[in-house]
Design a protein around this nucleic acid. Structure first.
Lengths: 208, 208
DNA sequence: AGCTGTGAATTATTTCACAGCA
DNA sequence: TGCTGTGAAATAATTCACAGCT
C-alpha cells in the first residue's frame, strides 16, 4: 500500500515526503504509518521526512522485490494472455518465463513476446527457468491437475484464478483471486446508497 | 468469505453446518464466526447448527446479492474478454449488460454472447440497461476519461483494472484491482522460505 | 521549527467460557 | 447432549502526545 503510494510520488518526481503527507495519500493515520515504517528500521530524517526513493528501495527489499522472480502462466486463454500482457509485472520484479496451454491449436502463438508452449513441457520449464511462482489461468476443471504438476515440479507458490479451492501440501502457498468478490463489495455499497444509508453500523469492516 | 465457504458446502450437498465446521473451513475461530453471524440475526439452531441454504440466502441478502446488478465493461482486449467470460459473475447476481471498446476494429465482435459496442454508446447503455457498476479494462491512458464518462452518466461504482489511480467526486466508489499485488505477496512468502524463516515476526499482517 | 520514533493511553477485535435453548 | 448467542476477559491495533534529533 505504502509502496504504491510512494511509487506514485516517485513518478511525480517528489524527492521527500512527511509521514503526514504519505499517510494522507495512503489513507491512514500518520502515527500508524510511522509505527509501521519503524518496523523496517529508522529510514526517516527528523525535521525532514522520508526520502522517497530510499524508502521505495527499503520496502521493496523487505518485500523481496529487489530480486527477480520467474513466473509461469498456465492457460493461454483471454485471462492468461491478459496477464502476460499486464504491464505491472515486468516493471515490478516479475519475469514471465513461459505461457503454457494444453490446446495444441494455441501452442506456438506469440503473446507478449513469448511463444505459447505445450503444457507437457511444464516440468522442463520450471527447472530450466527456475520458476518460483505458478499462475493458474485455466478452466476450473483443469486447475487442480495443473497445481499438482506445479507442486511436484517444486513450485511452492501458486496464484489461482480458477474458481476452485486447490488442495496443496503444507509448505505450499496458494492465493486465490476471485474477481467477483470486488463486484460484490461494490454491489454492497451500491445497495447501501440506495437504502439511504440506514442499517447496521458494522459496515466499516468491509472498507479495507 | 463465509459465503464462499457455504457455497462450497452447498455444492457438496451438505444440509447443515456447525459454527466449528464452518469456522475451520473459513479459517477462523468458531466464536468469531458466531459473533459475526449474530450481527445478521439469529439464524442458527442450538444443538444443531446453521442451515446452509438459509444462511447463504441471509448473507446474500445482506450483501445485496439477491437483486441483479447490471455491469458494463469498457475495453474489449484480453482482460475485458476474460472478464466477460468469467463464469463467476452470471451465477452470482451480476449481469454483463454490455462490452464497449473504442477500437472500431473490434466493435461487433461476439464475446460471451454479447456484441461489442462502440464506446460512444456508453451513456445510452448506462441509461437503457440501468448499469450500476462500471468496469474499466482499458489501457492506463484511457482509464480516467472512461471513468469520467461513467460518472457523468450516473454510475456511482467503478471497478478499475487499469494501473492508474482514478479521481472521482465524493459519493462514487472506486475499487482498484492490482494483479501484481498478489504476486508481491507470494514473492514475499517465497523469500521468507528461502531465508529459512528468520527475520521479523510481524509477518502475520500480510496473511489476510 | 519541523519532523521522526515510540512509550502510554485508548479503542477495537478476538477469544474464552458458559447460560440457555432444541 | 450439543449446539448457538453473548457477556466478560484477553489480546491486538490504533492513536495520542511528546522526547529528542536535524
Amino acid at each position: 500500500m505504502y509502496l504504491r503510494a510512494l511509487q506514485a510520488l516517485s513518478d511525480r518526481g517528489t524527492p521527500t515526503v512527511s509521514s503526514e503527507e504519505l499517510a494522507t495519500v495512503a489513507g491512514v493515520n500518520s502515527a500508524k504509518l510511522r509505527k509501521d515504517l519503524s518496523h523496517l528500521g529508522s529510514y526517516g530524517t527528523r525535521g525532514v521526512g522520508y526520502d522517497v526513493e530510499y524508502l521505495i528501495y527499503q520496502i521493496s527489499r523487505e518485500l523481496g522485490l529487489t530480486q527477480d522472480w520467474s513466473v509461469a502462466i498456465v492457460g493461454a486463454g483471454n485471462l492468461g494472455r491478459a496477464l502476460a500482457n499486464y504491464g505491472g509485472f515486468g516493471t515490478r520484479g516479475f519475469r514471465i518465463a513461459a505461457l503454457l496451454d494444453a490446446d495444441a491449436a494455441v501452442v506456438g502463438d506469440e503473446v507478449a513476446g513469448l511463444s505459447v508452449r505445450h503444457i507437457d513441457t511444464l516440468e522442463d520449464v520450471v527447472s530450466m527457468e527456475k520458476v518460483s511462482i505458478g499462475v493458474i489461468a485455466t478452466p476450473a476443471a483443469a486447475a487442480q491437475g495443473v497445481c499438482d504438476r506445479f507442486v511436484s515440479a517444486g513450485v511452492t507458490s501458486v496464484l489461482n484464478f480458477a474458481p476452485v479451492v486447490l488442495n496443496v501440501p503444507d509448505g505450499v502457498d496458494v492465493r486465490k483471486v476471485d474477481l467477483s468478490i470486488e463486484l460484490q463489495i461494490l454491489a454492497f455499497h451500491e445497495q447501501r446508497k440506495a437504502d439511504g444509508h440506514e442499517g447496521p453500523d458494522w459496515i466499516g469492516a468491509l472498507e479495507a
